[in-house]
Simulated assay, not measured.
Amino acid sequence: SAKEFTQSVFNHASSLPPVSSPVLRDDFRQTPSDVVVAAGEPAVMECIPPRGHPEPTISWKRNNIRVNDRDERITMRGGKLMISNTRKSDAGMYVCVGTNMVGEKDSDPAELVVFERPVFTKQPVNQVVLADDTVDFFCEVHGDPTPTVRWRREEGELPRGRFEIRSDNSLRLNQVRGEDEGTYTCVSENSVGKAEASGTLQVHGKTRVQNDIEFR
């Protein structure tokens, strides 16, 4: 009968598992952590999105702009964002985004800091001078954090009382002598690296031309 058929359909429907509604929870199971690297090194950020139905997909934003994996250095796999060869321009605030049909949830931001090893923009050069001259060895360096600069002489101490390290980090030698000959090295260092550059000094004695007048 129609009544029995209706009852049968009802019984069958009630035995089916309930159809779960789409859901996206608020709390990320793992939020990305801050990362500090030196330029050229790889960087990895990891995230596990909130539980959801359907299971959320993951994307990333840097400074509120979607990260694009068309850049061959960038790989997004599972919950990992991998940058193979970091540049200063990769630094910024990264957010993991979990998405399903309910909507999007953003993780707390994590910062990628990209430091740079010291790189010379001006290096000392080899010099040949006369005794008593003043000599400048230049050394300009770029890096982040700002590198320290110091000078050393490979053959021993810097000429005592006759050298000065100037505000531009150059080394000035006053009234040079033959004993000042040697190799002068600029040493630059910060928390992610160290660099050295050298120049040599040769000192020639001044020749004094004397006119001897011979009286006969």
Rank of each mutant, 00 (worst) to 15 (best):
Q123H: 04
P109F: 00
G103L: 13
G103M: 06
N169I: 01
Q123A: 04
N68Y: 13
L130T: 13
T57D: 09
P50T: 07
T86M: 11
M76W: 00
L173G: 01
Y94S: 03
P49Q: 04
T75F: 07
D133Q: 08
L171V: 02
R51A: 11
C139F: 10
R87C: 08
G182S: 06
Y184T: 09
V187Q: 05
N169H: 15
I58N: 01
K105V: 15
V114E: 03
E155Q: 15
T185W: 04
P118C: 07
P124Q: 08
M76H: 01
C96R: 13
N85H: 11
R51P: 11
I83S: 06
G143E: 12
E181S: 15
N174T: 03
V114L: 01
Q175P: 01
G92D: 10
N68K: 12
F138G: 06
V44G: 00
R152P: 02
I74A: 04
P145E: 03
P54I: 02
V128A: 10
G79I: 00
R77P: 00
F115L: 11
L112R: 11
D69L: 04
E155G: 11
M76I: 14
T57M: 02
S89Q: 15
P147S: 05
F120A: 08
F163N: 00
R153K: 15
D180R: 13
V187T: 02
Q127N: 03
P124I: 12
G52E: 09
T183P: 00
E72N: 09
G78D: 02
T57K: 03
W151G: 10
I83Q: 02
S59G: 08
V135M: 04
V176F: 10
R152N: 14
P109Y: 03
D106G: 11
R62T: 06
R162C: 03
I48R: 03
I165H: 06
F138E: 11
R150Y: 02
R153P: 15
L171N: 05
N100G: 09
P109I: 01
G79Q: 04
R62Y: 04
W151L: 15
E72L: 08
V149I: 10
F137I: 04
P118F: 09
P124L: 06
I165M: 07
K80V: 00
K61Q: 14
M82Y: 13
D108N: 12
D180H: 09
E104P: 01
D133M: 07
S107G: 09
P54Q: 09
R73M: 05
D168G: 04
Q127P: 05
D108M: 05
L112H: 08
F137D: 05
R160F: 06
P118D: 07
V125M: 09
R150I: 03
N174A: 01
P50N: 12
M76R: 01
G52Q: 05
M101P: 00
M82F: 15
V44I: 15
A91N: 06
G143K: 12
K61A: 02
T57I: 05
L112T: 08
E179R: 10
V129G: 07
E140H: 14
P159K: 13
G178Q: 14
R172N: 00
G92N: 14
V135G: 01
T146V: 12
T148F: 01
E46N: 12
T57Y: 00
A131D: 12
